[in-house]
């Protein structure tokens, strides 16, 4: 197989691993704030790796640019929404988990 296909498969697998880690964090972490942390960090990196892998297979620079735009939009949206959820949880009085 071509070198680009091998690289794409590796990047996609790495991205999937980060998504898996984020999901484990979502299921296992004790409170809202830590779950938000796991979701945004791991999923953004996972998505970035997947987009990088897919951009290697893109037909043109325009298509790769659109893929990058998707990643930037997801970054923006997830960061803002995580902040809004955490602020709403704080206003409702949910205390961060203490050991």
């Amino acid at each position: 197989m071509l070198i680009s296909e091998i690289l794409t498969s590796l990047l996609l697998a790495a991205g999937a691993f980060f998504f898996f880690a984020g999901t484990v964090g979502l299921l296992r972490f004790p409170d809202v704030y830590t779950r938000l942390h796991a979701l945004t960090k791991a999923d953004n990196v996972g998505l970035g790796l997947m987009i990088l892998g897919l951009a290697l297979q893109a037909d043109s620079w325009a298509a790769a640019g659109k893929l990058l735009l998707i990643w930037l939009l997801v970054l923006l949206a997830s960061a803002s929404v995580a902040h809004l959820i955490a602020k709403a949880a704080h206003q409702k009085g949910i205390e961060p988990w203490q050991r």
């Binding site: 923006l76 949206a77 803002s80 809004l84 602020k87 709403a88």
Partner: peptide, 17 residues
């Protein structure tokens, strides 16, 4: 309505897009 700097910035970027 939740108003705040983060939501305003998000809207400023997203709505034109």
């Amino acid at each position: 309505a939740y108003s705040g700097p983060v939501l305003n910035m998000l809207l400023r970027l997203l709505i034109p897009l």
